[in-house]
């Protein structure tokens, strides 16, 4: 089994600046990948004979945004979105975390969803998981075969797991709050 540092050196060597960062000291160490290199990196992780990350466990979207300006001034991070991929390998029983850091809105135009290439061609699990992240967090997965809402109704407005989301007052005559 290779150490975290050796693994990081190896994929940095392979993909260069597509690997934008890493945190090996975290409880679940993670590697940050640039969106444009994501599919390539995922295929590599899945197909290398000694890595074989053949199972995608989970895709989660996390919105880093503090609506309260007083609290936001004290934070040590800028507003952004993260898409987190938890992978594991059945043969080696090792798990890995990938992160893609995105702006909250594409080009800072509110309403324009940030884009990540879809990995549903690498693992089919991603199909529904990406639909869920699109539905609740508001990330567009380019190249996804059928990107539509999955948990909320099709005509729902907004992305509920965004931190600045406001519950609608009314939906088809049903009182919201």
């Amino acid at each position: 089994m290779m150490s975290g540092q050796a693994f990081l050196d190896r994929i940095k060597n392979e993909f260069g600046d597509k690997i934008t960062g890493a945190n090996l000291a975290a409880i679940d160490p993670w590697v940050e990948v640039a969106p444009e290199g994501l599919v390539e990196v995922c295929k590599y992780l899945r197909d290398q004979p000694d890595l074989r990350f053949n199972m995608l466990n989970c895709i989660s979207g996390v919105d880093y945004f503090e609506p309260d300006p007083k609290k936001a001034a004290k934070l040590d991070w800028q507003p952004h979105l993260e898409v987190v991929y938890h992978l594991s390998s059945l043969p080696t029983k090792i798990s890995l975390v990938l992160k893609v850091i995105l702006p909250r809105w594409k080009g800072d135009r509110p309403g324009d969803l940030p884009e990540v290439p879809s990995v549903s061609g690498v693992w089919s699990t991603a199909d529904w998981h990406e639909r869920e992240v699109f539905d609740l967090v508001g990330v567009r997965f380019s190249g996804h075969p059928d990107l539509r809402r999955i948990l909320c109704p099709e005509d729902w407005v907004g992305y509920p797991l965004r931190k600045d989301y406001e519950m609608p007052l009314e939906y088809h005559g049903i009182r919201g709050r």
């Binding site: 053949n54 199972m55 995608l56 466990n57 059945l90 693992w123 089919s124 699990t125």
Partner: peptide
């Protein structure tokens, strides 16, 4: 088995 793993 391949499909089961692929779909998680």
């Amino acid at each position: 088995p391949e499909m089961a793993i692929d779909y998680g």
